[in-house]
């Protein structure tokens, strides 16, 4: 069922992308194959494959490695995605350390830590990783408002 739903969505997406991709043409053609041939070929192949998935007879056997989702897990997944998105938003705006502390605390709570565990863990992880990457490995990280304090 889910497979067919996915196949249907992919097929629609392919069609939309074909419409978008049809317009890609080089202003000056130096070579016989333009910029749109390869992606359109792929979209056609994906479309055919997905169409086959959509209409082929159901095999009836379900040997899925991944457990099915229930409402509880679904809610957790949504929260986790929200945390990731907020973290991405705050990454430059708040600076690495504050945003990472907040994010790590939230994630630790989500993965079953107690309040104290998550608070201590969050601060240790965020500050530790900042020191490791910024000083140890020379990867520059955004400081955000804290940068003003340094001068």
């Amino acid at each position: 069922m889910h497979d067919r739903l996915f196949a249907g969505c992919t097929l629609l997406l392919c069609l939309a992308l074909v419409v978008v991709g049809w317009a890609y043409q080089a202003p000056f053609a130096y070579e016989p194959v333009g910029p749109r041939a390869f992606p359109l070929l792929l979209l056609a192949l994906i479309g055919c494959a997905v169409l086959y998935q959509l209409i082929r007879p159901s095999t009836g056997q379900h040997a899925q490695a991944e457990p099915a989702l229930d409402r509880h897990v679904g809610r957790k997944i949504a929260l986790c995605v929200a945390a990731l998105l907020l973290y991405a938003t705050a990454f430059e705006w708040l600076g690495f350390i504050p945003s990472s502390v907040l994010f790590a605390v939230a994630m630790a709570r989500l993965y079953g830590a107690s309040t104290w565990q998550s608070l201590i863990g969050g601060v240790v992880i965020a500050v530790g990783l900042y020191l490791l990457f910024d000083f140890g490995l020379d990867v520059p990280l955004p400081l955000g408002p804290i940068a003003a304090l340094e001068n």
């Binding site: 990731l84 973290y87 991405a88 990454f91 990472s100 994010f103 790590a104 994630m107 630790a108 709570r109 993965y111 079953g112 830590a113 565990q117 998550s118 863990g121 969050g122 992880i125 965020a126 990783l129 990457f133 990867v139 520059p140 990280l141 955004p142």
Partner: peptide
């Protein structure tokens, strides 16, 4: 090492890797 400590660390390191 418990999952609750591991996962935030993985997530943050991943973000650093992408941001870099």
């Amino acid at each position: 090492v418990p999952t609750w400590a591991l996962v935030p660390a993985i997530a943050i390191i991943t973000s650093i890797g992408v941001y870099a």
